[in-house]
Nucleic acid binder design. Structure first.
Lengths: 169, 169
DNA sequence: CACCCGAAGTTGACGTGACAACTTTAAGCT
DNA sequence: AGCTTAAAGTTGTCACGTCAACTTCGGGTG
């Protein structure tokens, strides 16, 4: 019975500014990436994942797992990026799609963007955090991801391990 | 030269899990709201803002300021919600649009949803945080919002004050 | 071998959010 | 009054993300 029936005013205030802060930060990073390198955050994520792949070529499913995105999201994103000639989908002789790779344009875009983008993340995000704030956010993030993944039946390890070195966004 | 040229691995890890956690949380809240009450987060935000308005009727601009959304975003959202008969836009005799209000359907939707949604926010967000973590996150959020608003020339007070009691998401 | 089933991938429809261009109104100024 | 302007609101276009439906392989198993 200690449970309040709705949130306390200061909880609403916290919730609102948290949601808004996230949106403003994402927008700012996206704008900078677009202005300086002509690509979006989503495009950057795909490009950098492909760039890190040893072969430089991945299956759609690998991309989806590595990014922790749904397959359909990846497929749509690849279609848009193929139109912009940032990636190409290769086909075997029967027209079957077998892999995704960077085009020259995609490769140079990501190589140009990587340092600048990382720098923006540092300036806009990490340099505004105290160690306690960083720890709080990190802890919360891990719990949230673990909880949702546990719920949707992701057996044992699965995605969690991969997240460590991927996805960017 | 103390500045690293890119982010540290644990910074990438924090960044990635944070981005993912946001997305998972937003999706979960949205799905619950949709399943239990038939409305989306965006719709809920608009409905609850209108519901809190003393008159029950607001100008588009007030709505935009209260939610800290861009005008065009509000206009598009209202068009969709008008089609679904959650709100109505009233016109004066010359066909001029003068205000937005809840329909009966909109009112009952928000009145049904408010407690359940608040409860989900508490369960998914607040109950996973210690008070110190909440305080750290709150502090950072305010700083981020203030910084971005200062940059985009929002004179003096402006939006910040309004956020305190609005927007939800 | 034939069949069926599940994984991989695509597609369409839809809601969301950002940005820019535009129209109309309401004020101000001289 | 008449002219100019900025605010208010709308619209179009585009990218992003989710869900559901669908196609097509690749393997088993009878």
């Amino acid at each position: 019975m200690a449970k309040p029936r709705t949130l306390e005013p200061e909880q609403w205030e916290l919730w609102n500014s948290w949601m808004q802060a996230q949106r403003l930060l994402a927008r700012e990073l996206d704008r900078d990436l677009q202005r300086d390198y002509g690509i979006s955050k989503a495009e950057f994520s795909v490009l950098v994942t492909l760039h890190r792949a040893a072969e430089g070529r991945m299956r759609v499913g690998e991309l989806a797992e590595s990014l922790a995105w749904e397959k359909s999201r990846v497929a749509h994103q690849l279609t848009r990026m193929e139109n912009r000639e940032l990636v190409d989908r290769t086909e075997d002789r029967s027209g079957r799609r077998i892999g995704v790779g960077l085009t020259a344009k995609g490769r140079s875009a990501v190589e140009n963007a990587i340092l600048g983008h990382a720098d923006n993340i540092r300036r806009y995000f990490f340099e505004t955090l105290t160690p306690e704030q960083a720890a709080a956010i990190h802890m919360w993030s891990r719990q949230m991801v673990d909880r949702v993944e546990a719920r949707s039946g992701e057996g044992a390890d699965g995605i969690t391990a991969k997240i460590a070195d991927q996805s960017i966004m």
